[in-house]
Simulated scan of single mutants.
Amino acid sequence: MNNIFSGDDQIGVVSSFSELVETSFQGTINAICWKRNLAGDFKEIVSELQLKENIKEVSVEDLLALTLSENGHNARKIILNDIQLLTDFGASPSLNLLKKYERDEEFSFISTDVYSYHVDRSPIGTDTFLCTYHGAASDILPNEQATKKILIPEIREKLKEIHDGPEEEFEDFLKEYFFDLHYEPQPNAQPINLGAGHLWKLAVDHPEQKVLPCVHRAPTENDGEYRLLLIC
């Protein structure tokens, strides 16, 4: 496993799916990338799919029903192969065509939607896999460049104001509403864009995890452009 992301010791790079799933996170590495240069017209697939809501889960049957050019066929073959690889591994991949995610506007002082830097949590040992085939790609952030929002004094005070319960239950309240999973980038933060076509494995917060969970966020979508994203 080597590192080709300039100067970053958070990311490991592998050259196959088997390496991706077999390589463990270690030390400061909490994101592993199967770096690929995909040949295919993924934009054609996006243009052929129908999106009536903000998000649509695209099934294998939806993909197979498309009439595509040779380049579009090549792109579909890659997506189907990725879905099969992840399914055979035991994951449950979801292919999403999306215009935008729902925004969290309940509280003006803290956001807990996917556009906010956050980590994933699971009660069991698991990893997050994702690949952006078309459109804007997600960002990750080095852990040392991120501050938990619940530790920022003014945010913490406002959360205490809306907490309806005894002080000893405050930490449980933060977890129940996922406030503790969200982070604020520090002023000097340098996000790393995950790019298109690469299949990533990100560390999740779970009881057996030996590294820090990977801080990441969904990107702001490009105007007039849908995203095609595989995630599980």
Rank of each mutant, 00 (worst) to 15 (best):
M1Q: 08
S6N: 10
G7I: 00
D8W: 15
D9W: 03
S15C: 12
S18T: 14
L20Y: 07
V21C: 10
V21Y: 06
V21M: 06
V21E: 13
E22L: 07
F25H: 07
G27H: 11
I29T: 14
I29D: 10
A31E: 11
I32R: 00
I32D: 09
W34S: 05
K35A: 13
L38C: 04
G40R: 09
F42D: 02
K43Y: 03
K43R: 13
E44D: 11
I45W: 02
E48M: 13
L51V: 03
I55R: 01
I55M: 05
E57T: 04
E57R: 01
V60P: 00
L63H: 01
L64V: 02
S69K: 07
N71L: 13
N74S: 15
N74L: 13
I78E: 15
I79Y: 01
N81S: 15
N81E: 15
N81M: 12
I83P: 04
L85S: 12
L85P: 06
L86G: 10
G90K: 05
G90N: 03
A91T: 13
P93F: 02
L98Y: 01
K99L: 03
K99H: 07
E102C: 00
E102I: 01
R103P: 04
D104R: 02
D104Y: 07
E106S: 10
S108C: 04
I110D: 01
D113G: 07
V114R: 06
Y115M: 09
S116E: 15
Y117P: 11
V119R: 03
V119P: 03
D120V: 11
D127I: 00
T128W: 02
F129I: 11
F129N: 12
L130R: 09
H134L: 01
G135H: 02
A136M: 06
S138N: 14
D139V: 02
P142L: 08
N143C: 05
E144T: 10
T147M: 09
T147R: 11
T147K: 11
K148C: 14
I152G: 01
P153M: 04
E154P: 05
I155P: 11
K158Y: 08
L159S: 09
H163N: 13
G165Y: 11
G165K: 12
G165F: 06
P166A: 13
E169H: 15
F170I: 04
D172P: 03
L174R: 10
D180E: 14
H182L: 08
Y183L: 07
E184H: 12
Q186P: 03
A189H: 06
A189P: 07
I192C: 07
G195K: 00
G195S: 08
A196R: 11
G197S: 14
H198L: 02
H198D: 14
W200Q: 08
V204T: 15
V204Y: 09
D205W: 03
D205R: 07
H206Q: 14
P207R: 04
E208M: 07
V211I: 05
V211Q: 06
P213V: 08
R217Y: 08
A218S: 15
T220D: 15
E221S: 02
N222R: 10
D223M: 05
G224D: 09
E225V: 07
R227D: 01
